[in-house]
């Protein structure tokens, strides 16, 4: 939102960067800002990236577009996974069939427990 700093933080684990969006909504109002901040936070290494959307209770098509855009921007060598999707966020991915593109984990711990660094192709399931 204009005038307020978006809540987003980053934690680096061995080989994996976890980006957690601390906003209740990933929507048209913050999609552009989110893309920019995500790119800044994930530049400069080859780490796998896990995007934790745990706090997000609402996502619209602009939010989904932003998630696809950051996934594409990382380039084909970078592994990118999603974690902590609430039912409304899950629904948007399911309806658009984007759930077939991403590996989706219940939460960050589950994503970290499943170390996919050996599977850098990020094969679709």
């Amino acid at each position: 939102m204009a005038g307020t700093e978006m809540q987003i933080d980053i934690k680096k684990h061995a080989g994996t960067t976890v980006v957690r969006l601390g906003e209740s909504r990933l929507d048209a109002a913050i999609a552009v800002q989110f893309k920019e901040r995500f790119r800044e936070l994930t530049e400069g290494d080859k780490n796998r990236v896990v995007l934790d959307l745990g706090p997000v209770g609402f996502m619209d098509s602009s939010g989904l577009g932003a998630v696809v855009a950051i996934y594409k921007h990382l380039g084909r060598e970078r592994v990118f996974d999603l974690a902590g999707l609430s039912p409304p966020v899950s629904r948007v991915l399911t309806l658009t069939r984007m759930d077939s593109v991403f590996n989706i984990y219940p939460d960050t711990d589950a994503a970290l427990a499943d170390d996919r660094m050996g599977n850098a192709a990020n094969a679709h399931h």
């Binding site: 098509s61 594409k72 084909r76 948007v92 984007m98």
Partner: peptide
């Protein structure tokens, strides 16, 4: 129309979901 989801990361649609939804 339903956006087409192909196997190529570079080709994935970033928009066109709104009216479909």
């Amino acid at each position: 129309a339903e956006p087409r989801i192909g196997p190529e990361r570079e080709q994935l649609p970033e928009g066109g979901f709104g009216w479909f939804l």
